[in-house]
Measured scan of single mutants.
Amino acid sequence: TTVKLGDIKVTFDNPEKAKKYAQKLAKIYQLTVHVHGDTIHVK
Rank of each mutant, 00 (worst) to 15 (best):
V35Y: 13
T39I: 13
A26F: 04
T1K: 05
H34G: 03
H41P: 02
K24P: 00
Q23R: 08
I40A: 01
A22W: 04
K43N: 08
L31H: 04
V42E: 01
D13T: 12
K4Y: 14
P15I: 10
K9H: 12
Y21F: 13
T11W: 15
K43L: 14
Q30P: 03
G6T: 03
V33R: 00
K24A: 11
T11I: 13
L5C: 15
L5R: 04
T39M: 10
Y21C: 09
A26H: 03
F12W: 03
Q30R: 11
K20C: 08
D38K: 07
V3N: 02
H34K: 07
K24S: 08
K27T: 11
Q23H: 11
I28L: 13
A26G: 04
V3P: 03
T11F: 14
I40D: 01
H41S: 07
T32M: 09
I28E: 09
A26Q: 05
T2H: 09
H41N: 06
H41I: 15
V35F: 12
I40M: 05
L31T: 06
E16N: 09
L25F: 03
H36K: 09
T32W: 06
K20N: 09
K43S: 13
D38E: 07
V3F: 03
Q30H: 14
K17M: 12
K43Q: 12
V3W: 01
H41E: 14
V35S: 05
V10H: 05
I28P: 00
V35A: 06
L5A: 04
V3K: 02
K43R: 13
Q23P: 00
D38R: 06
T32L: 07
D7H: 15
G37Y: 05
N14Q: 06
Y21S: 00
Q23D: 12
T2N: 05
Q23F: 11
K19G: 05
Y29G: 03
G37A: 06
K17C: 15
T11Y: 15
L31P: 00
V42L: 15
L5T: 03
T32A: 09
F12H: 00
L31N: 01
L25S: 00
A26T: 03
A22G: 02
Y29N: 04
K17D: 13
Y29M: 05
K27N: 10
L31Y: 07
A18Y: 02
Y21M: 04
I28M: 13
A18G: 03
K20Q: 11
K43D: 08
I40P: 01
L5I: 15
E16F: 09
I8H: 15
D38P: 06
D7L: 14
T39W: 06
I8Q: 06
T11G: 04
K43F: 14
V42A: 02
T39P: 01
N14P: 01
D7Y: 15
D13G: 08
Q30V: 05
K20W: 10
F12P: 01
K43V: 15
V10I: 14
K24T: 10
G6P: 03
L5Y: 13
K19R: 12
T11H: 13
K27E: 14
L31E: 01
T11C: 12
I8M: 12
T2W: 07
A18E: 00
V42T: 02
K4M: 14
D38V: 06
K4E: 07
T2M: 07
D38S: 11
N14W: 05
K19P: 00
H36E: 15
V10T: 05
T32C: 10
I40C: 02
L31D: 01
K24F: 15
A26M: 04
T39G: 03
I40T: 02
I40R: 00
V35I: 13
H41V: 14
E16H: 09
V35H: 08
V42Q: 01
A22S: 02
V10D: 01
E16K: 10
A18L: 03
V35W: 10
V10P: 00
P15R: 09
K9F: 12
A18I: 02
G6H: 08
I40L: 08
E16C: 14
T39F: 08
E16V: 09
A26V: 04
L25Q: 02
F12I: 03
Q23E: 14
K24D: 08
H34D: 07
V3M: 02
K27R: 11
A18Q: 01
T1Q: 04
V35Q: 09
N14H: 07
T32Q: 10
I8V: 10
L5N: 03
T2S: 07
V35P: 04
D7E: 10
A22K: 02
K4R: 11
Q30F: 09
T39L: 10
V33E: 00
G37D: 06
I8L: 13
K9Q: 12
Y29Q: 02
K24I: 13
Q30L: 07
T32K: 08
I8F: 15
K4A: 09
H34W: 10
K19H: 13
L31M: 13
V35L: 08
D13H: 10
I28G: 02
K19N: 09
P15T: 06
V42W: 03
K24M: 14
H36G: 05
K19V: 11
L25I: 09
Y29I: 03
Y21K: 00
K24H: 14
A22Y: 03
Y21P: 00
H36C: 15
V3E: 02
V42F: 10
P15S: 07
V10W: 15
K17I: 11
I40F: 07
N14M: 05
V10M: 10
Q23S: 07
T11S: 09
H36N: 11
V33K: 00
V33N: 00
V42Y: 03
L25D: 00
T1E: 02
A18V: 01
A18R: 00
P15L: 11
F12Y: 02
K20R: 12
H41R: 05
K20P: 00
H41K: 04
D38G: 07
I28F: 11
D38W: 07
V35D: 08
T39Y: 07
H34V: 14
K27M: 12
H36P: 00
D13M: 12
V42H: 01
N14K: 06
G6L: 07
P15E: 08
D13Q: 11
G6S: 04
D7T: 14
K9A: 12
Q30K: 13
